[in-house]
Amino acid sequence: MLNRRTFTSVAALGATAIAAPFVYAQAKLEKTKVSIAVGGKAAFYYLPLTISEQLGYFKAEGLDVEISDFAGGSRALQAVVGGSADVCSGAFEHTINLQAKSQYFQCFVLQGRAPQIAMGVSTKNMPTYKTIADLKGKKIGVSAPGSSTNMVANLVLSRGGIKATDVSYIGVGVAAGALTALRAGQIDAISNTDPVMTMLEQKGDVKIISDTRTLKGTQEVFGGPMPAACLYASSEFIQKNPNTCQALANAIVHGLKWLQTAGPGDIIKTVPETYLLGDRALYLASFDKVREAIAVDGLVPAEGPKTALAAIGSFDNTVKPEKIDVDKLYTNDFAKRAKDKFKA
Rank of each mutant, 00 (worst) to 15 (best):
M226T: 00
G62M: 09
F222A: 08
I36C: 07
I187S: 00
R159T: 10
P242V: 05
K336Q: 14
K336F: 03
M199H: 15
V206M: 06
S102I: 00
S158C: 13
E303T: 04
L299E: 11
D316Q: 13
T274V: 13
P321A: 01
I267G: 00
D325M: 01
K136G: 12
V109K: 07
A344F: 10
F22G: 03
Q260H: 12
A20Q: 10
D297N: 14
P272H: 09
V290N: 13
T50I: 08
F92K: 00
L29E: 03
I187F: 07
L248V: 12
R280W: 03
T214L: 04
T165V: 10
Q219T: 05
T32Q: 15
A285I: 00
V10S: 09
E292N: 15
G120D: 05
L29W: 04
P272Y: 12
E273W: 00
T16F: 15
L49W: 14
K257S: 11
A17H: 11
G40A: 09
I187P: 02
V300Q: 07
G40P: 03
V81Y: 05
A293W: 12
Q111K: 04
G263C: 02
S74Q: 06
L55Y: 05
L215A: 10
K269T: 10
A233G: 15
G223N: 06
M199P: 09
E220V: 11
N243H: 04
Y330I: 02
G62D: 05
T16D: 11
D288M: 02
N3M: 09
H254A: 13
H254D: 06
A17M: 05
F70H: 14
G14T: 11
V23P: 12
S102C: 04
K124W: 00
T318R: 03
G82T: 06
L155P: 09
F58L: 01
I96G: 01
T193W: 07
A153R: 07
R183G: 02
N97K: 11
G120L: 00
Y57P: 08
V121P: 07
I51W: 14
N250H: 08
H94C: 04
V206R: 04
